[in-house]
């Protein structure tokens, strides 16, 4: 498969995953805002911005609706939901022949929905109306992808994009929440704090799943365990890394094992780390430090994928 094609497929899904994550985060926080005093709004939206990795040009000015609007619609900002979907579609357009017609149609529909609702009425555009449409649209795209595309190399790169983006997003969000709430957590929570932890779970579509495993006992350590180390929760970091590792092994198999050895090592080690880690240990090391290290390893995997499969130098390729 052409490196450029792999690159486009990878970024197509990364952008979609990012759009979905951002949409859910905004949606959850807009709802939570209704239950709280204006005083805590400051902290909330600062936290949302940190949870998105503090994208440049977005600033909290005291108006939640304005900020939500900006993050949703601002075309001049690369991190807005609208920009993410435009970028995803642009990547798909570059490899139109490599994806199925169903995929293309679904992505196109989503694109038109997002661009149209804004251009028709920029002033009256309401984020809440189609945050749901974005979430549903991206879910549909994933389903269509899995059931209409060959599960070959191209699909594997789609998996890589999806799960690396998801792992990073969950890690950043976890960092922000643990940094803010962990210190004061003596395991008896007040109303607001309880809501915030539920907000975190909701932002990862994990609240229902969490309750099924741990009952409605909301406890930060268990939340950390659930979002970081759970094997079955599709938004847990461990699950995402398992999928990344699976995709990488399939790609190594098709594209030659020897070149991929360093990447196999990094990903394998990360998978094992998450598989055998325990929450008390992590707390012992310091949660913040631990999450940061996992995030760094995710970035290392990304860098290595690019070095080995996409932007390799001609000299190394000719020598190998």
């Amino acid at each position: 498969m052409l490196s450029r094609v792999a690159d486009s497929l990878y970024w197509m899904t990364r952008y979609l995953e990012r759009a979905e994550h951002t949409a859910r985060l905004i949606d959850v926080n807009l709802t939570l805002m209704l239950d709280e005093s204006p005083l805590s709004a400051d902290r909330r939206w600062q936290r949302v911005l940190s949870g998105l990795g503090n994208p440049p040009d977005f600033e909290w000015t005291g108006d939640a609706d304005a900020l939500a609007n900006l993050i949703t619609f601002d075309a001049s900002n690369h991190s807005s939901i609208r920009s993410c979907i435009i970028s995803a579609r642009e990547n798909a357009r570059q490899v139109r022949e490599q994806i199925s017609s169903e995929q293309w149609q679904q992505l196109n529909r989503l694109y038109h929905e997002v661009t149209r609702s804004y251009t028709e009425d920029p002033a009256g555009a309401q984020p809440s109306e189609f945050l749901q449409a974005v979430i549903t649209g991206t879910h549909l795209f994933q389903g269509v992808t899995d059931s209409t595309m060959n599960h070959g190399e191209g699909w594997r790169f789609i998996q890589l994009g999806r799960y690396l983006e998801r792992a990073s997003a969950t890690l950043i969000l976890l960092s922000v929440y643990t940094q803010e709430f962990w210190s004061q957590s003596d395991l008896t929570m007040e109303g607001n704090e309880y809501l915030e932890w539920i907000g975190l779970l909701r932002s990862c579509t994990a609240f229902e799943a969490y309750r099924k495993v741990y009952t409605n006992d909301v406890n930060p350590e268990r939340i950390l365990e659930f979002l970081l180390l759970n094997e079955e929760n599709p938004h847990a970091v461990r699950h995402a890394i398992d999928c990344v590792q699976q995709a990488l092994e399939a790609i190594h198999g098709e594209a030659g094992k020897r070149r991929a050895a360093p990447l196999g090592r990094i990903a394998g080690r990360l998978q094992a780390t998450l598989q055998f880690a325990q929450v008390p240990e992590i707390i012992g090391q310091g949660v913040g430090v631990y999450l940061k290290e996992i995030l760094r390893q995710c970035q290392e995997i990304h860098t290595n994928i690019y070095q080995i499969y996409i932007h390799y130098s001609i000299e190394t390729a000719l020598a190998g």
Binding site: M1, L2, S3, R4, A6, E153, F157, I251, E254, A255, G256, R259, Y309, I310, Y312, I314, A317, L318, G320
Partner: peptide, 19 residues
């Protein structure tokens, strides 16, 4: 064009499996 490279007057395409 960006998928192709030349080396010693031979043309290659960049694939995930090498040149």
């Amino acid at each position: 064009g960006r998928d192709l490279v030349t080396h010693d007057n031979v043309v290659y395409m960049r694939t995930t499996n090498g040149l």
